[in-house]
Design a protein around this nucleic acid. Structure first.
Length: 467
RNA sequence: GGCGAGGUAGCAAAGUGGUAAUGCACUGGUCUGCAAAACCGGUAUGCGCGGGUUCGAUUCCCGCCCUCGCCUCCA
């Protein structure tokens, strides 16, 4: 019952055991709240959610901290452009992010600290770093981390300093030309005219914190000097996480965390998402196309987190069918055997083991369908049906966070009067074996967005999918 | 240029030194007036290309082609 997960630093799959023996404490780099998050962002957040759910399903409580980056170049630029205060601007996008997360079935973190509300902690950390000789103030009032003071730099990303220096994109920022070395990164950025009203006092003058610092400071406050795991998208490995390690470990003198969990990027139609390619989707855009968030979650879950996952609309369209089939299967089992609480049962052990083995979600789902194919709900004994249903709910709902729609309820009763009237007419025609009339009435119902299924004694009506 | 990941059926995606899970789509059948749903089947002699090792490779090695990511603030 222990999750084994690949660790970026050691490049090996390792068992996850909490340092304090009681709860699993982990930090996830959260969104920069300056615009709508896209499905690529959500691949990371959904996988982190599954990660958390699996840990919790093993019986281990978690402490999940995920920050909100609400003070940086993009948020300040966005607020200035919108003529809003930074807090009003970021609050709007924070709320949108929360709504998307909720729609995707992600459990909210236990703590969601805001960067701009933790300036004292960040400043204190800089002071410690300066005092210890790991950071220095430049003439303009910016403060930089002195990379040469931390020999361990580059271990996570496996880049040595020589490679860093010769990196293709090493061009010094026009505002960072006071650095002693091009590789040094900003802990505090001196106030600039374009920052507008968004600057704060510090021992080095007015300005704002560097991006990397917020995570170090807030992780320290909410998780302590050393915690269990740190996570984010692969692009954060370098430089963000590398810098966090440098700051935190130089500040506290202790190892930052035991494990690094990085999620590979999502591709769309085989390409990296970008606005210019027009393949950057948000949940809202997909909703407009008739795709609900659970279908999106399904697609995001259907690849191993260390493999590139190719998102296609074609695949998304099929997600609804898959989810509907699961819903019906579970409902049929429960109808046959009865309902009970979700729990880990023998039939779903193969799927559970796949999840414990480096979060192999696609394999787990394959096991679920294999189970379904091998066992027909109607042919199993009631007791076995209960066991299967409980296990399926455990894997699908508790662990993978897939909300099975409440039995696509043949909502005959909820149909509008005109629809019901048409249905009655069709049922009469069908009973009278007037097939042509029955078929044309069915077409009329379809045009109204309803589908009619004939049963033995009566019929059922249900709304067509919204697409 | 450096580091890393990957190329498996129409679309996705697991997986393994012994002969290719699974989902969607498609398709044959049962059922149905016809459908839908459900159920029973089918659909890669093949896993980027060329060599090699091996009794045997999609899985190991070498070379090549292509894609993708990171290389200072993009999940």
């Amino acid at each position: 019952m222990t999750l084994h997960l690949f660790d970026t630093l050691s490049r090996s799959v390792r068992p996850l055991r909490p340092l304090d023996g009681k709860s699993f404490r982990f930090y996830c780099c959260g969104p920069t709240v300056y615009g709508p998050a896209h499905i690529g962002n959500f691949r990371t957040f959904v996988m982190q959610d599954v990660f958390r759910r699996v840990i919790e399903a093993t019986g281990l409580p978690t402490r999940h901290v995920r920050n909100l980056t609400d003070v940086d170049d993009k948020t300040i630029r966005g607020a200035e452009a919108a003529g809003q205060s930074l807090s009003a601007f970021t609050a709007e996008w924070r709320d949108a992010f929360h709504a998307d997360c909720a729609a995707l079935g992600c459990r909210p973190p236990h703590v969601e600290p805001s960067a701009v509300e933790h300036l004292p902690q960040q400043i204190a950390m800089i002071e410690t770093l300066v005092a210890k000789g790991h950071a220095y103030a430049a003439d303009d009032g910016s403060v930089y981390f002195k990379l040469s003071s931390f020999p361990g730099y580059g271990r996570l990303s496996h880049l040595d300093t020589r490679e860093l220096r010769h990196g293709a994109a090493v061009t010094s920022d026009e505002y960072e030309n006071d650095k002693e070395s091009v590789s040094d990164f900003a802990l505090w950025k001196a106030r600039k005219p374009e920052d507008g009203a968004n600057f704060w006092p510090s021992p080095w003058g007015e300005g704002r914190p560097g991006w990397h610092l917020e995570c170090s400071a807030m992780a320290l406050k909410y998780l302590g000097e050393t915690f269990d795991l740190h996570s984010g998208g692969v692009d954060l490995v370098f430089p963000h996480h590398e810098n966090e390690i440098a700051q935190s470990e130089c500040c506290t003198g202790h190892r930052l965390c035991e494990h690094w969990f990085h999620i590979t990027h999502l591709l769309v139609d085989g390409r990296k998402m970008s606005k210019s390619l027009g393949n950057l989707y948000t949940l809202a855009q997909l909703a407009d196309m008739g795709h609900d968030a659970m279908a999106v979650r399904w697609v995001l879950l259907n690849g191993h987190y260390r493999q590139p996952l190719n998102f296609t609309l074609d695949n998304l369209a099929g997600a609804r069918s898959a989810l509907a089939r699961l819903t019906k299967s579970v409902a049929a089992l429960e109808q046959h055997g009865g309902q009970t609480a979700p729990r880990l049962t023998p039939p779903v052990q193969p799927a559970w083991q796949a999840l414990l083995d480096d979060l192999n979600v696609p394999k787990a789902l394959g096991q679920i369908f294999t189970l379904l194919n091998e066992t027909t709900p109607a042919t199993v004994a009631p007791a076995a049906a209960i066991e299967m249903a409980a296990g399926l709910r455990f894997i699908l709902e508790e662990t993978l966070g897939l909300t099975l729609p409440p039995a696509i309820a043949e909502s005959t009763a909820s149909a509008p009067d005109n629809v019901r009237t048409l249905a009655e007419k069709r049922w009469a025609a069908r009973t009278a074996k007037e097939w042509a009339a029955a078929d044309s009435l069915r077409a009329e119902l379809g045009a109204l967005g309803w589908t009619m299924k004939d049963g033995k004694e009566t019929y059922t009506l249900s709304p067509l999918p919204s697409a």
